[in-house]
Design a protein around this nucleic acid. Structure first.
Length: 779
DNA sequence: TGGTAAGTAACCAAG
DNA sequence: TTACTTACCA
């Protein structure tokens, strides 16, 4: 066994050795937090704490696996008993055991976003609401917000007293929950919320887990939401040996409910909490770290910490300008090709990062053209592909025949003459008789309106019943005629054959169909891989595994390919060489964040940018294009404001228009605007604000600069912002359309507009631009 | 009921 | 650009 403290710096050692009681580790990017966590677990085991009593929650399954491996290497025994998992898998495990205590059955299904949306669509239809007004996506987003904050149906009802739209939402939420329960299914957010509910309703269950999980660690703590925080707070409530690791500067999941206050509240809930800061970065060169620091320091709501590094200075950060996205992709792919051809690097050392998944297509094209091996993370997940979801729906229905969404999905796939009208009639019958869709289909003879389709439906249900028998044989470990036991692979193959799903694709014989067949083969190998690597395989557990894999989980470290992913996906990863593409205002930072009057959005984008930059170890190339096709329309965006926040002395620019010549101009006016002749939204960036964007003046730096992406090239009339007339002052009460009432606690004058800080009664402190915020003074 | 053509809304990020 | 819904006919 190696010395657990060897090679750690003082802060790291302290964190590894501080085992009892609550501990908050503020770990900057690349400060070796995974190392600290693994060594800490090893140290605990060494000290005699049973691995069985330790839990570590990570962000992805991949991180969980890696952590276990690393602990294994250090302690050489027992690590397999440490419970390392994500929030979602941990909750599923708990629910799988105790779901019956809260009125579900233990063979429940897990609904992904697509399934949930279908269910909501049904609910909206059943309520006779206008589907155009109640879009599934929007509704699901709102329900998801509620669940992430543990807001129950009755609480929404309570809030909705005089608001009929909200009242409708409450009803949808209500019916959606009833439907989920009727289908014996949990959606992603339910997994957490219902587990919390279980803990609250069944203290004995909670206590059994408290007694088992005496030492709990949570990674990426800054991205936990209220529900997740409550989950761990309850678990750690008895022994209070809770260690959380996070970095407020890397909080990038506010959109799915992450609440940065969890870091602040930590000291509130765990009063005697110890705080340790890890501020030495081991990952990046000084130049890269400087770039990251100079961007993030423009955020004003952050915990005080300074990341420093002993690493070499390294090369300058490259900023590259392209005419369009194709040229950008060309630059990226040829740079990679060149480096590899000259033996300077391996493909695996490159990552291409972007803000939105849509950007991957063109990059992919160019990589393919140059025969560069690559892998795209995210976008269309393997398990979200149509053919895979179809087959999984069959399996789900066989495992849990109350799963109406699964029935609806595959009842006519492949086509067997049971059309929408028939399904609708069956659904009606089921809902009148308060039964599940599949049960309604089983008693199809009683449904007069379905006389025409009854034969076809019976054929379908007979087939499913047959599959169920096979599953029972598998569960009972019965032997086939050839003496071998029944397997899940057999069942899956049988489904593919009996339904004619495979045959249909073979007949089609198009590229697309063949691709789908390949995917199905891959699914089959995943089934058998699961069976062969699991002690007690079960269909439910397999389905659970596949519904919780994240995109990142499929990324392996030892394969030689370039990876492409969004910045969000890249969180927690590092690469020697990083290309950060599409650094344009309107794309990164996103259009939405620029337009939002609430500057918190921009701050979140800036943290995202910070995450992106700090992924790079040795080389960082930041790239932007002058024009870009968005939804078939050419946009002319200006260079990202975040690039402008990086000091010029650590930037080397390739192909950037006349940067060198214009440098004197820059010194004079301060800003890239002179260098880049196209700056589409230059209107607002004129005058003094140029200086502010370079960061010479700390008050002005806080001002977000607004520039609309223009559809015309060059110097089209930019978005005009007129300084708002404000009739309120610090200390006044004001009202905002979205946030309600609050007190003005600060007003800063800028060249174009006032920046107003308001402490709202319900949503807390917000900083906003006066002209956008339209604040009304309250007397 | 199922296939095709035309029309239109959508992309911000994820388990 | 692409993916999905709507309209129409066999």
């Amino acid at each position: 066994m190696q010395d657990i403290l060897e090679g750690l710096n003082n802060a790291q050692k302290e964190a590894v050795e501080y085992i009892e009681g609550p501990l908050l580790i503020l770990a900057g990017a690349g400060s070796g937090k995974t190392r600290v966590l693994t060594h800490r677990i090893a140290n605990m085991i060494n000290k005699g704490i049973r691995p069985y009593n330790i839990m570590a929650i990570t962000f992805t399954n991949k991180a969980a696996g890696e952590m276990r491996d690393r602990v294994d290497k250090i302690v050489e025994y027992g690590a397999e008993d440490v419970w390392v998992s994500t929030f979602h898998s941990a909750c599923v495990k708990i629910l799988r055991r105790y779901a019956d205590r809260i009125g579900y059955s233990n063979d429940f299904s897990i609904y992904d976003t697509e399934d949930s949306k279908r269910l909501i669509k049904n609910v909206v239809k059943d309520m006779n609401l206008d589907p155009k007004l109640y879009k599934e996506k929007v509704i699901l987003g709102k329900i998801s917000d509620f669940k992430n904050k543990l807001v129950t149906v009755s609480e929404v009802r309570e809030r909705a007293k005089s608001d009929y739209k909200l009242a409708n939402l409450a009803s949808i939420y209500d019916r959606y929950q009833v439907a989920l329960k009727g289908n014996n299914a949990f959606d992603f957010d339910d997994l957490i919320m219902r587990t919390v509910e279980l803990f609250v309703q069944c203290p004995d269950v909670l206590e059994s887990y408290q007694n088992r999980l005496r030492y709990i660690m949570v990674d990426e703590y800054q991205d936990t939401n209220v529900a997740q925080f409550t989950f761990i707070r309850l678990l750690a409530g008895k022994y209070k040996n809770l260690c959380v690791v996070g970095d407020d500067d890397q909080s990038i999941y506010k959109f799915r409910g992450a609440d940065i206050r969890n870091i602040l509240q930590f000291e509130k809930y765990f009063k005697e909490a110890k705080i340790i800061k890890l501020e030495q970065n081991y990952r990046s060169t000084k130049n890269i770290l400087n770039a990251a620091n100079s961007v993030i320091k423009n955020n004003y709501e952050r915990k005080d910490k300074t990341l420093w590094s002993d690493n070499e200075e390294g090369e300058k950060v490259v900023v590259h300008e392209s005419e369009d996205a194709y040229e950008e992709a060309e630059m990226v792919s040829s740079s990679i090709k060149e480096a590899v051809d000259y033996g300077k690097a391996d493909y695996s050392e490159f990552a291409i990062l972007y803000r939105t998944n849509a950007q991957s297509r063109i990059l992919e094209e160019k990589l393919m053209l140059k025969s560069i091996p690559y892998k795209i993370i995210g976008g269309q997940n393997f398990y979200q592909r149509r053919e895979i979801k179809d087959i999984l729906a069959y399996l789900r229905l066989v495992a849990n025949n109350t799963d109406d969404i699964a029935v609806e999905r595959i009842i006519n796939v492949p086509k067997r003459g049971i059309g929408d009208a028939s399904v609708e009639r069956a659904r009606e019958f089921a809902s009148i008789n308060k039964m599940n869709l599949y049960d309604a289909l089983l008693s199809v003879d009683e449904i007069e309106s379905l006389a025409r389709a009854s034969k076809k439906i019976a054929k379908f249900t007979n087939m499913i019943e047959e599959f169920k028998k096979d599953l029972a044989k598998f569960d009972n470990k019965e032997k086939k005629e050839d003496g071998n036991p029944y397997t899940l692979l057999d069942l899956t193959n049988k489904i593919l054959d009996e339904t004619g799903y495979r045959a249909e694709l073979i007949d089609e014989n198009t590229d697309e169909a063949n691709g789908r067949l390949e995917n199905i083969d891959e699914l089959l190998s995943k089934v058998s891989e699961y069976e062969n690597n699991t002690q007690e395989p079960s269909l439910a557990a397999f389905l659970e595994d596949v519904s919780l894999v994240s995109d990142i989980d499929n990324l392996s470290d030892d394969s030689s390919y370039v990876v492409l992913m969004t910045v969000h996906s890249a969180k927690g990863l590092e690469f020697p060489n990083v290309f950060l593409c599409g650094m344009e205002d309107g794309l990164f930072p996103s259009f939405m964040s620029i337009m939002d009057e609430d500057s918190n959005e921009i701050q979140e984008e800036r943290r995202l940018c910070y995450v992106a930059i700090t992924r790079a170890m040795k080389h960082l190339t930041i790239s932007y294009a002058k024009r870009r096709m968005v939804r078939g329309e050419t946009r002319y965006n200006s260079i990202s404001r975040f690039i402008k926040e990086i000091p010029l002395n650590i930037v080397s620019s390739k192909n950037v228009t006349d940067l060198k010549e214009k440098k004197p101009a820059f010194a004079k006016f301060g800003g890239y605007e002179g260098a880049f002749s196209y700056d589409g939204g230059s209107g607002y960036m004129g005058g003094k604000s140029k200086v502010s964007s370079r960061g010479g003046n700390s008050t002005m730096r806080k001002k977000p600069a607004y520039s609309m992406p223009s559809k015309k090239p060059a110097f089209g009339k930019a978005f005009e912002v007129t300084k708002a007339d404000i009739d309120y002052a610090v200390g006044d009460r004001v009202e905002h359309s979205k946030f309600g009432q609050g007190t003005v606690i600060g007003i800063e004058d800028g060249p174009r507009d006032y920046q107003v800080t308001v402490m709202f009664d319900t949503v807390g402190q917000k900083v906003m631009m006066a002209s956008f915020a339209k604040l009304e003074k309250v007397d």
